[in-house]
């Protein structure tokens, strides 16, 4: 394996591990009640974010929904600004107006995540439309969940994207639950990706917990989208490890079968990738420890900086409602 590829493969592993450790740190400190906003952790779903975003360039743009920490970090969103946002600081990525569910880092190409299921779907399509109209060569990538597929706006948006052959990659993170409600109670027994195909998108269904699988499919899809082949769709099966909203594990509530939970825990995207890298001779215990240490160092520094930042001034509350 060439050095560059080896670095890149290791870097994607590092990115997944970084997202995991950041969210574990958030969960550990959440009980202090200083991060006073709803928080939806993506622990267990790191390969979808890192795999799909690895196919994008710096100038490409992404949008996401309420469970967006992983997407934000994978696209290069500023870690300190995100943590400051969760602490309600003036230096937060949304200046304290958004919290966990409203992240943005335009320099990194993370154009926004919002709190209404389906809310950013048409907005992302509009960004892809703008890219096409101005011939920018930019691809837009949009993350959403299986629940979003029940929203009318999802279908309206796919229709327009297909009609205009827009340069967009739809990434459906199918974690099989909308809060506590299983997919079977919400949608008939037909594959999500088949509906996307029927809308005229090029769609695939994949194991979203296997980084190389996601990465390869996303690479090809982004390439097609950029080449003018129209909208692409990936349905990625995955599993949220923690509760829908909050820092804890909620499987004692009994809404998910213990066998399924055990099965998905065994399919950890990070440890599976670590094992693969071990087998390829790309990662050993010492290398892993180096990566862990560097991540921990970065997280500690980010929390320190975020907590030192001032809260927003009362007189700034009315700012940014309108321009000019």
């Amino acid at each position: 394996m060439y050095l560059q590829e080896r670095r890149s493969t290791l870097d994607l592993f590092r990115q997944m591990l970084r997202i995991r450790r950041v969210e574990e740190a958030l969960a550990a400190r959440y009980a202090e009640q200083e991060m006073r906003c709803p928080m939806h952790l993506c622990i267990g779903q790191e390969a979808t974010a890192v795999g799909a975003i690895s196919a994008l360039g710096q100038d490409d743009r992404i949008f996401s929904g309420h469970r967006a920490h992983g997407h934000y970090l994978a696209k290069g969103g500023d870690l300190t600004a995100m943590i400051a946002e969760l602490y309600g600081r003036a230096s937060g990525c949304s200046k304290g107006r958004g919290g966990s569910m409203h992240l943005i880092d335009t320099e990194a190409g993370f154009m926004g995540s919002t709190a209404i299921v389906g809310g950013t779907v048409p907005v992302a399509v509009g960004a892809a439309w703008a890219s096409q109209l101005r011939d920018e060569g930019r691809v837009v990538c949009l993350f959403f969940g299986d629940g979003c597929f029940e929203q009318g706006v999802m279908h309206e948006s796919m229709n327009f994207a297909a009609l205009h052959r827009l340069p967009i990659l739809f990434v459906c993170e199918n974690n099989h639950y909308a809060v506590y409600t299983p997919l079977e109670e919400r949608q008939p027994a037909r594959p999500i990706h088949a509906i996307a195909s029927a809308h005229g998108l090029q769609a695939q269904e994949l194991d979203g917990n296997r980084l190389p699988t996601v990465r390869t499919a996303a690479d090809e899809a982004v390439h097609r989208a950029r080449a003018g082949d129209g909208p692409q769709f990936l349905e990625l099966h995955t599993w949220r490890w923690r509760e829908h909203c909050g820092p804890d594990v909620d499987d004692h509530l009994g809404y998910r079968a213990p066998e399924a939970q055990a099965d998905w825990l065994a399919r950890c995207p990070i440890e599976n990738e670590a094992a693969r890298l071990h087998a390829l001779g790309l990662l050993d215990d010492i290398g892993r420890q180096h990566i862990e240490n560097a991540i921990q160092h970065e997280i500690d520094a980010a929390f320190d900086a975020a907590l030192r930042a001032p809260l927003p001034r009362v007189e700034d509350m009315y700012g940014h409602l309108h321009g000019q």
Binding site: P122, V125, G126, A127, A128, E156, S157
Partner: peptide, 15 residues
């Protein structure tokens, strides 16, 4: 598709 098209116009506007 008024809702999506409004969102699409928002996406174009922020771009």
């Amino acid at each position: 598709a008024e809702n999506a098209l409004t969102g699409i116009c928002i996406g174009a506007a922020i771009s």
